[in-house]
Each structure stands twice: as structure tokens, then as C-alpha cells.
């Protein structure tokens, strides 16, 4: 099986009759970067939660790395960076990564090695022993990326990863994601940033009101209507007026 993520007819209903996802089907091939687009309230975060087994769909199936998403083993090789995450403020970055490393079942030596490596990668090595409660928002985002990469995941799930990042940080993140793809890893990220999707993604999908409007390569999404840009295509699909 060469699919990292597969959703089939997934419906998610919240309380008070709100339908967050409506028969969503999509698939993400291994070793690709997949962009997930949609306006606010489209159901992107709900989709991410369904993929990670953080919620149980009302119907349909979700598979992650070939296993049902509610099986914890499916997440062994997965890294997750939420849109707005907060981490245990009384811990230092090293302690936080050590904690997650234990959850992954890593040995003490391996935890130490990987923690130092990811902290170095995201530029937090110098503050590894400072309590997280003293960190700025940008630094907290970096912590998030570090913990997402700790277990050297085969699949990375990122929810609005560039939100709150300065241009330099975005460049670094872009480079990192491309590097991960070159190593054969899969990246799934939801985003508002159409430019990022255009630059990075092999395939993308557009979601609105819980329904999948379109899925394909970026070229397919753009090329279907001549030389229309992804932005114009997106805006037209979700019912806005292109500029």
C-alpha cells in the first residue's frame, strides 16, 4: 500500500446537528507533500483530528500508515504540529521532548540524541534548559516543530504550520519540508497560504463546508481552467470574487 493517509466517506457530526465533514474522501500518497485548503470553518482542523484519531467519525473510515486511525500504533511514525499548541509550561524543551520520547517508547540514549538533534534543527539548542513558560510565541512554534520531528516520523501532519511565522522562519520551514520529502517522508498540511501550497505541494485538495470540492496536483488544479492561478481557482471554487 502506497497511501500514507486515506479517508473514505468520512462524516463528522458535532452536537446540535452541526455537520463538520460530509462524506469526505481523500488519499495522500507516501513520499509527497499534500496541501489541504479551505476557508475558515471548512473542516480542515476536523479532518486533521480525524486523521490522527483525536475524534471518531460518525461514519466512514480513516486509515493512517495502513492502520485504522484510532489504533495508537498508526501514530508511531507520525509527527503532529497543531495550529495553536501549548506545551507544559513548567517543563524545559529537553524535558518536554524527553516526555514525548518516553511515550514513543524510545530508550534513554535515543531520547537524548534525538532531542538534541531536533532542538538544534529548529534553533532552540541554546535554550534547551529554560522553562517553556518564558518562551515567546515564535519559540513555542519551534518547540512544536521539534516535538513533531522527535520520532523521525514517516508522516508529518501540520495544521497551519506557517501561521505566526516571520518570512525567514517560513523559508526555513519550506526548506525543511522539501528536505523531508526528499527523504521519502509524507507531509500533510492544511493552510490558508495558497502561495505555500503552490510552492511546496505535489497534490492538494480544496474543502468547503465539510465537502471536498476538488483534489489533484497543483498543476491540475491550476491547469483545468487555462492559465488561472491557484488563488483565482480557489476563490472561484469557494464562492468568492476573484480580484
Amino acid at each position: 500500500m502506497d497511501l500514507a493517509i486515506e479517508l473514505k466517506d468520512v462524516t463528522v457530526d458535532y452536537a446540535r446537528g452541526k455537520r463538520a465533514l460530509d462524506g469526505l474522501s481523500l488519499s495522500v500518497k507516501k513520499g509527497t507533500i499534500f496541501g489541504f485548503l479551505g476557508p475558515n470553518g471548512a473542516g480542515k482542523s476536523t479532518t486533521v483530528k480525524a486523521i490522527l484519531g483525536l475524534l471518531r467519525p460518525s461514519s466512514g473510515s480513516v486509515r493512517l500508515n495502513g492502520l485504522p486511525a484510532d489504533d495508537p500504533r498508526s501514530r508511531r511514525d507520525v509527527g503532529y504540529l497543531p495550529e495553536e499548541a501549548h506545551y507544559y509550561r513548567f517543563l524545559t524543551p529537553l524535558e518536554l521532548l524527553d516526555f514525548y520520547g518516553r511515550v514513543f517508547g524510545l530508550s534513554r540514549v535515543e531520547r537524548r540524541r534525538r532531542s538534541e538533534a531536533v532542538l538544534d534543527l529548529v534553533g532552540l539548542a541554546a535554550v534547551a534548559k529554560r522553562p517553556i513558560r518564558t518562551f515567546s510565541k515564535g519559540m513555542a512554534q519551534k518547540i512544536g516543530l521539534a516535538q513533531a520531528l522527535l520520532n523521525e516520523p514517516r508522516t508529518l501532519v501540520l495544521d497551519e504550520p506557517t501561521s505566526g511565522l516571520d518570512p525567514l522562519a517560513r523559508l526555513e520551514l519550506r526548506a525543511l519540508l522539501l528536505k523531508l520529502r526528499s527523504e521519502g517522508r509524507t507531509v500533510f498540511f492544511s493552510s490558508h497560504e495558497l502561495s505555500e501550497v503552490e510552492l511546496l505541494c505535489d497534490t492538494a485538495a480544496i474543502l468547503k463546508d465539510g465537502k471536498l470540492l476538488q483534489q489533484g496536483t497543483v498543476a491540475e488544479l491550476e491547469g483545468g481552467r487555462g492559465e488561472e492561478s491557484l488563488e483565482r481557482h480557489f476563490v472561484r471554487l469557494v464562492g468568492g470574487r476573484p480580484s
Binding site: G53, L54, P72, R73, R75
Partner: peptide, 14 residues
């Protein structure tokens, strides 16, 4: 409240 739960539950923990 701190939203640390999703990050933890996205790990291989039942």
C-alpha cells in the same frame, strides 16, 4: 484548557 491534550493524544498512547 491549555490545549496540550491533542498533542499528547496524537502520539501512540491509548
Amino acid at each position: 484548557e491549555a490545549r496540550t491534550l491533542p498533542v499528547l493524544l496524537a502520539k501512540p498512547i491509548r
